[in-house]
Design a protein around this nucleic acid. Sequence first.
DNA 1: CCACAGCTAGATGTCAGACATTTAGCATAG
DNA 2: CTATGCTAAATGTCTGACATCTAGCTGTGG
Lengths: 252, 252
Amino acid sequence: MTEQAAAVELRRVRKAYEQVADQLRDAILRGEIKPGNRLPNEATLSTTMGVSRATIREALRVLAAQNLIRTTKGATGGSFVMLPTADHTSAFLSSNISLLSQAESVSLDEFLEIREYLEVPAARLAALRHTETELAAIERAVPEDTRDLGIEDQFVYNKGFHSAIVEACGNTLLLIAAQPVFSVLQTHLRRSTLGARFLGQVVADHRKIAAAIAAGDGDAAEEEMRRHLHFLRPAYRRAWREAGERRKAASG
Amino acid sequence: MTEQAAAVELRRVRKAYEQVADQLRDAILRGEIKPGNRLPNEATLSTTMGVSRATIREALRVLAAQNLIRTTKGATGGSFVMLPTADHTSAFLSSNISLLSQAESVSLDEFLEIREYLEVPAARLAALRHTETELAAIERAVPEDTRDLGIEDQFVYNKGFHSAIVEACGNTLLLIAAQPVFSVLQTHLRRSTLGARFLGQVVADHRKIAAAIAAGDGDAAEEEMRRHLHFLRPAYRRAWREAGERRKAASG
DNA sequence: CCACAGCTAGATGTCAGACATTTAGCATAG
DNA sequence: CTATGCTAAATGTCTGACATCTAGCTGTGG
């Protein structure tokens, strides 16, 4: 038997760059290196940790991809600890759930469902807590007249409107969660063809929601947003179905 | 003057490894390389993209950090496209919002607020849609008798209970969003001291919620969960305040 | 015919050293 | 005083070599 050695408590070898990344990440997470501080330069890290500069660099790329550091060139350059922003987090989340949806491990209903759980409260909170600036942004995101707008412009307004609301709700976490959901839904809708009637109704809904928010009427904002989201559902279902067919055609 | 060249439309140089990472990411996101497929090996990528292997490797580390690929050694090894799982996404989100909270750019109220928006609907959905297995998991996560449980055990049950519910709600996106919020709140609570009365009430609440879910009563589950979360608030506020003081003491 | 040890090919992991490039600040000439 | 150019310090990139891991093949003894 060769298995007697099993008692010696052996772990899988962790790759050197993973260990380096882990150590640095822990130091950052524990606050030993604070946001804005510079890490030791690559040569120093290399000698103190006993690995080559190439290994150090691979570890730094990992941390950079996680938005924990940012690296710049030049005499005053180096790797600086950075706080991940809401935008970073949203962007990452967005690409991840986009992949999940592509792989059909998340259904359209799940997207629609959680969107309602996030944006309906967001509309209420926006009505109750919005600042002047935020309200102005919301109203600016509703076009005056839709007739001379191209389809692309409509999408821009659309995105701007929903962004403005979740930003006005005063809850960063809600913002982080809601943006990616909306963004994934939109990329699907974008490939579908939409009628003028539909687009007109969207703008009309937006106008009603904006009015409720401006009036500070949380109940109305909530209700209008809920109706709006329900109104959108058939369009999303159609777009989703079409996307599924495209995918099937491409792979078959 | 040396500024006349401004007309030539120059862009900031993107680092080579970023360009490589972007190209590969796009190919993956567009579905040109499907989950499970293997990327060309590093040497091949190196020659076809016209950069050194070191550069390729740095790009691969970036993609790996974003859970888009996984790299293994050996003859049949290489870099394989991988679907990010809900767990991966949750874990990343968790570390990001943990940092945001440390930096005090997200307040406790925001955490409590969004937790309610996520877990209250989750309780309702769990009541309406749970499977046998999921219900069993929920009930297993409520201890029969709390008297012989250590504080650590209570935390384990606690975490298990909330996990079981969001898993039973049948919405992966809700799961992805709710887990990190809960997890960050718990790490704060864990460093606080909690009385036996408090812990007893927590278990009693959990039992009521579990009963409502078992009965398939969505309204009751929703209401009990809301009451439970409101009951918890003072404890979180105290824990959060203590954490703030600890931080201040450490830095001052 | 089977089990097993060892070999081998193919891939990633790591190292060392060199050179290129960028950037800020300093020194210097006009 | 200003503009120019030099220099130091850091990251960015390349090259080539060697180490290590892993699956599968291969040959051999039972």
